[in-house]
Every structure is written in structure tokens, then in C-alpha cells.
């Protein structure tokens, strides 16, 4: 009963937003359909590449219900395989980027030492590492390493930025209250950096999913949505390829959304929202 009322309240406040999102998605699908139909009429050879939305929806359903003959897996298996890579890469990236970022943000020396390496490696697209990672990390950990790279830098840069923008008045206040360097770090710098860290996490998760196709080009041991897209593209099954792309888009939205919910809870708990 209470939940129902909450939903009603939420809908009353947000129906315009909901209506607009539905409208924009509908317009997109309609445009896609028209474009596809236009290709069917004018150049059937191109039509093959852009199947209409209805066919893609059908392919999407098939990918879940019919066993994929090339990999002998269902879409749920592919999702599970990709999710594992994302989570592993994410945990490794956050586990390293957070302490390194805190260190580089707090100590001038650490920043001076770390910055040239960060600046040199940051602009290299994760894709470029594929051959080397395949040799170094092999077929199982190679894809995880690619995802790791995609998530590592956004988290690192945001944490460094957060530490460096700590409000100096808060540090002054802490000092007049008797705080020494250690206290300032744990009681001022760390909580201050949380929102910046969360921004890095949300951006990183998106980049991580962007890297998954490249990562799974290395080979999909146990499948993977990226591997699925890649294999359907090479066998010209474009409706299934688009189905895989839609799944990645939805998964990315889902994980970023979950991070957003976690962030909201965290801020509420910290009293900042």
C-alpha cells in the first residue's frame, strides 16, 4: 500500500520526464524503422546491415531463448561472462586507483613522480593494448586487463582532483580544533573525496562497458556479450549483432544506475543530501 502510494507520488512529480523519455525513444525507433525501410526499397545490399527494429527485437528474444550454435551458449551466459570481467576489472581498478590517487593528491612528490607516467599512458586507447595483453596476461586475464585500464584512469584522475580541491577552510578549521596531518587525512580529506571518487566510478563503469567488445575480441573464454557481437558481425548476422549491442547498452545503464543508487544512499548516510 505504502509502496503503491510512493510510486503514485513519484509518477505525479515525474510524469513529464517519463513521457519525454518515452517520446524520444519512440522517435528514435520510428526513425530507425523508416531508415531501414528506405534502404530495403533503394539498396537491398545495405538493408542487410540495418535490419528494422522489429527484426532486432525478435533477434534479441531469440538470443535468450535459442542456443547460439557458434558458442553453444545462451545470452544469459554471455551476460554473466561479461559481468564477471567487468566486476573483476572494476575491483582491481578501484583497488589500485583509490590508494594511488589519494597518495598522488596528497603528496607533491608522489604527484611529480606519478604524473608523467599517468599522462603518457592515459591517452593510449585500451584497444591498442590487445596484442600485448594477450601475450602477457593470456586469454583469460587479458580481457580483464583491458577493462581494468578503461576504469582505472577515470577513477584515478577524479580521486586526485578530489584530494586537491579539498576546501582549505575546512583544513584550517580542523587544525584549530587540534587535528594533525593524519587526522586531516582521515577526517577531512577522505570524506571530502567521496563524491569525486563516485564520479570516477560512474564514468569508469561506462568506459569499462565500452572496452568490453575490444576486450573480448581477444577471445571469449566462456562467452561474453562483446565476443557475441564480434562473432555475429563476422558471420553477417547483423540482427543478432544489434541485439548484443542493445544488451551492452542496457547493462551499462543498469550498472551506472546501481552506482547512482549506491551514491545516493551514501550521501544520505553522510548527511550530504
Amino acid at each position: 500500500m505504502a509502496v503503491e502510494q510512493e510510486l503514485k507520488k513519484w509518477f505525479a512529480a515525474n510524469w513529464q520526464k517519463v513521457a519525454l523519455s518515452l517520446l524520444s525513444i519512440s522517435v528514435f525507433i520510428a526513425g530507425w524503422h523508416l531508415f531501414s525501410e528506405y534502404l530495403r526499397a533503394t539498396s537491398p545490399s545495405l538493408y542487410e546491415y540495418i535490419p528494422p527494429p522489429a527484426q532486432v527485437l525478435d533477434a534479441l528474444i531469440r538470443s535468450f531463448t535459442v542456443l547460439d550454435p557458434t558458442s553453444n551458449l545462451y545470452m544469459t551466459d554471455h551476460i554473466w561472462a561479461s559481468l564477471k570481467r567487468i566486476v573483476l576489472g572494476f575491483l582491481l581498478a578501484v583497488g589500485l586507483a583509490l590508494p594511488i590517487g589519494l597518495l598522488m593528491g596528497s603528496l607533491k612528490g608522489a604527484e611529480a613522480a606519478g604524473k608523467p607516467i599517468v599522462e603518457m599512458f592515459r591517452p593510449i586507447p585500451p584497444l591498442a593494448w590487445i596484442p600485448i595483453f594477450l601475450v602477457i596476461f593470456g586469454i583469460v586475464w587479458g580481457p580483464v586487463a583491458i577493462v581494468f585500464l578503461g576504469i582505472f584512469f577515470p577513477v584515478l584522475l577524479n580521486v586526485i582532483f578530489g584530494v586537491k580541491t579539498v576546501d582549505p577552510v575546512l583544513v584550517d578549521a580542523a587544525r584549530t580544533l587540534g587535528a594533525k596531518r593524519g587526522h586531516i587525512f582521515t577526517k577531512v580529506v577522505l570524506p571530502f573525496t567521496v563524491p569525486y571518487f563516485m564520479t570516477g566510478v560512474k564514468v569508469g563503469l561506462g568506459v569499462g562497458w565500452m572496452c568490453i567488445v575490444a576486450a573480448e575480441m581477444l577471445g571469449g573464454v566462456g562467452g561474453g556479450v562483446g565476443f557475441y557481437i564480434f562473432s555475429k558481425a563476422t558471420t553477417s548476422q547483423y540482427d543478432l549483432m544489434f541485439a548484443g549491442m542493445i544488451v551492452i547498452g542496457l547493462l551499462s545503464t543498469l550498472t551506472t544506475g546501481l552506482a547512482g543508487v549506491f551514491e545516493d544512499r551514501l550521501y544520505r548516510w553522510m548527511g550530504m543530501r
Binding site: 577552510v169 575546512l170 584550517d172 578549521a173 580544533l177 587535528a179 587526522h183 577526517k187
Partner: peptide, 28 residues
């Protein structure tokens, strides 16, 4: 600790409740 200071910008820790802001110095 013999000198307390109050700033124009308030300088409260936004993640701490009023009570925990007041307790900051004592915690340390």
C-alpha cells in the same frame, strides 16, 4: 586547543551532523 576559531565561511564539515561537528576536537 587554548584558542578556538570561528570562520566567516562557517567551515562546518558537511558530512557531520551538528553534534558530530561539535565533537570533532574532542574525538581528536
Amino acid at each position: 586547543p587554548d584558542r578556538g576559531m570561528v570562520f566567516q565561511e562557517f567551515a562546518l564539515f558537511p558530512w557531520r551532523s551538528a553534534r558530530r561537528n561539535v565533537e570533532f576536537g574532542l574525538e581528536i
